[in-house]
Amino acid sequence: MTPSSALTLESARGIGQLQFQIPNTPVASRHAREWLTGPLRASHPVIADDVLLCLSEAVANAHRHTTSSVIRVDSLIIEASVLVRVHDDRPGVLPVPADPRADAEHGRGLTLIDACSDAWGVIPLGGPRATGKTVWFVVLTRGSEAV
């Protein structure tokens, strides 16, 4: 399976919705970053690095902690903010930021998302019989107060 995407953007401003599916492989984070880099650099260059770091961490967590065959990502890019949602098919315990040891090689993903985004959370999918979850985050453009 190859990555696939849907694009609905006002091309002049890079504002709009983007959807992307990527096979759950070790390179999923890289492919997700490559997919969103162009639109972000065009529309929100000041916050692009924060958004891309959060995206990379969320996709890496979906890869590392789920058996989803596909990781789905969607984003909403508007003038005031960028919202990104990463969907997987692993229900159960919802992730929380860890307090990793200073020398730990893993365990910092949600802590980085918490530090680099203006808001984030986890939503179980599928109602009482959860079928997966969505990790979402929002990064506001500098000077914005609302999403």
Score class of each variant (00 low, 15 high):
G121Y: 03
K133A: 12
S43Q: 03
A146D: 15
I47W: 08
T111L: 05
I113A: 07
G132P: 13
I71M: 00
V93D: 15
E34W: 10
Q17L: 11
D50G: 05
W35N: 02
T25W: 01
L7T: 11
F137T: 15
W136K: 07
C54N: 04
V122I: 03
S69Q: 15
G38M: 09
D118Y: 00
T141M: 05
V139H: 06
S56Y: 04
A60D: 10
N61S: 02
H106C: 12
P45A: 07
I113L: 02
K133V: 00
R142S: 15
L83D: 03
D114K: 07
S68P: 01
E145Q: 12
A62R: 11
L7Y: 13
T66R: 02
T66C: 03
A119Y: 03
W136F: 10
L110P: 12
V122Q: 11
V82C: 02
A104Q: 05
L9M: 01
G38H: 10
L76M: 09
V93G: 15
G16D: 05
V73M: 02
D103W: 00
E105W: 03
I15R: 07
P91Q: 03
H44E: 06
A60N: 08
L40H: 06
F20P: 13
D50A: 07
D118T: 05
H31M: 06
T131V: 09
A42N: 14
F137V: 12
P97T: 13
A119P: 04
Q17W: 07
T141A: 09
V135A: 14
S5T: 08
A28P: 00
T141K: 02
V138N: 05
I71Y: 00
A12M: 07
V27M: 12
S4N: 08
G92K: 07
G109L: 06
P39Q: 08
D50M: 10
R129L: 15
L9Q: 08
G143M: 04
G126P: 13
D88N: 10
S5M: 07
S29Q: 10
L9I: 10
G109V: 10
V139T: 11
D89Y: 08
P128T: 10
I113R: 00
P26A: 01
S5R: 07
I78Y: 01
T37F: 11
E79I: 05
S117V: 13
A115R: 01
L9Y: 02
L55F: 03
V27R: 09
I77E: 07
V70K: 04
A115E: 05
G38K: 10
R13D: 14
T141E: 10
S29K: 11
W120D: 05
L18I: 03
R85G: 10
L40I: 14
H65Y: 13
L110R: 04
G14S: 12
A12D: 11
P97M: 14
L83Q: 06
Q21A: 11
T37M: 13
G16N: 06
P23L: 12
I113G: 02
V138E: 04
T134K: 09
R33M: 06
G38D: 09
R41H: 09
V59S: 01
Q17R: 14
A42M: 13
C116S: 08
G38Q: 12
P3D: 11
A6M: 09
P26K: 01
T66D: 04
S4L: 08
P3N: 11
S81M: 00
P95V: 00
S68I: 00
